[in-house]
């Protein structure tokens, strides 16, 4: 009888300046989220991560990486590439927040309205997305995630170690505080 071998998945792609980062550069705790903008569980985690960053403003920073599960979420890839198009214009987090706050409006028509609300030119971004200008970046995040043991969305790595607990605020606070004091 073989016992299940528990392997702790670790982040293999270190955080770099190419990443989308929210929070202090010298934070003791770095949370890397692999997320899918159309995933309801990511949507549920979104306000909790927001609140975590607010309550631990000096100690925690959040890194967001794309992990669209396109076969289940038909709008996820387009949403990710749109966020990246916003990112190259310095508006990643505004777009990220809009997407998670409008998860029922990710179809192309509403997405364009979202881009406009974020203050970016929808036609220009649409053209980039249509040309798949940001597909490589999204794919790179995805592949790095799958090699790191991302097993669904959201998957969080807290200081490089996969967080296998829940995404409610108390769970996140506990995980972040444990990492800060480790």
């Amino acid at each position: 009888m073989s016992t299940p071998l528990q392997v702790t998945a670790r982040l293999r792609d270190p955080v770099t300046t190419d990443d989308h980062i929210r929070g202090p550069a010298d934070a003791a705790v770095t949370i890397v989220e692999y997320g899918d903008f159309q995933c309801q569980f990511c949507g549920a985690a979104y306000p909790n991560l927001h609140e975590l960053l607010r309550q631990r403003a000096d100690t925690v920073r959040l890194v967001y990486r794309y992990f669209p599960i396109a076969n289940v979420h038909p709008y996820a890839e387009r949403a990710a590439e749109t966020a990246e198009a916003a990112g190259v214009r310095g508006r990643f987090w505004e777009m990220h927040d809009w997407l998670y706050e409008h998860q029922d409006q990710l179809d192309p028509v509403h997405l364009s309205l979202g881009v406009e609300q974020v203050g970016l030119p929808p036609d220009e971004l649409n053209a980039e997305v249509e040309n798949r200008a940001h597909a490589d970046r999204v794919r790179r995040d995805f592949v790095g995630g799958i090699r790191s043991g991302v097993n669904g969305t959201p998957t969080l790595f807290v200081n490089g170690i996969r967080h296998d607990g829940g995404y409610d605020l108390p769970d996140l606070l506990t995980a972040a505080d444990a990492a800060a004091n480790a």
């Binding site: 599960i69 396109a70 097993n151």
Partner: peptide, 10 residues
């Protein structure tokens, strides 16, 4: 579902 969906996405 997550595991098989994940393998499809990969």
């Amino acid at each position: 579902g997550d595991q098989m969906s994940l393998y499809q996405s990969a």
